[in-house]
Amino acid sequence: MRYGYFPGCSLKGTGRAYEESLLPVMQHLGVEMVELDDWSCCGATAYMAVDEGKACALAARNLALAEQGGFAQVMAPCSACYLVLNKTQHFMQDYPAMRRLVDKALGSVGLKVSNDTPVRHPLDILLNDVGLDAVKQKVTRPLKGLKVAPYYGCQIVRPYSTFDDQADPVSMDQLLQALGAEVIDWPLKTKCCGGSLTGTLPEAGLRLSYILLKEAKKRGADLIATVCPLCQFNLDGYHDKIEAKWEPVRVPTVYFSQLMGLAFGMPANRLGLQRGFIPMPSLPRAEAVAA
């Protein structure tokens, strides 16, 4: 199992704990992740708002790099990157004019894109390529008694649901259960966290983060598990502002990959857990399980 790894800007910055946990966990499962050489920003939600032609061409550059590197598949852990790369492929397929434009732009620097390299999310890979049985086999420290609210956010199932149900995704639920955690059922698992609005228009954006945290707490979650660096940032980074405006809703938000690492018996500081603001609760007493 070898994948071209597209980290995206956040996984090198605010979301570096995601990368720090995902790499060892995937390696532990025998998944090879090779970082694409000289990848550039996917464009996220901002570039589309300025120029969709350039947004597509720049995103397609990364797809071309993956092809050039001989990767049959690309792994994009960040939700925005995952969406933008998939969306670019859809746009090129659905609109011949867009395809011609991208071909021309990439051609100007000697790149080519055949547009048939699947761009996949780590959850998809874990469930469908690695398999939950293989994950279970690696669990040495089950997350027994830990109540986790799985939070998928927007962009991995919307608008393209390639590996999970659009309205009621379950892949992370299943993964967390395989780690031994107790999964909280809540209706907000795909609701928006506020995205970049928490920074640009906090009165609107923060409210969405607040609602998520409040509901997770109300339903008894010890923590929220996320798949997206921006969601993690929003749900973790603004507690003082949320408290000032509404009420304390101190529930930690961590990456699913960090929980995997813990369940695999890896030390917390090797999984970037020291980088969160709201500290992870201590795990219930370790019950070592024969590996």
Partner: peptide, 10 residues
């Protein structure tokens, strides 16, 4: 104000 959550689109 659109945060690109795509809820409307789906």
């Amino acid at each position: 104000l659109c945060a690109s959550c795509y809820a409307c689109t789906v």
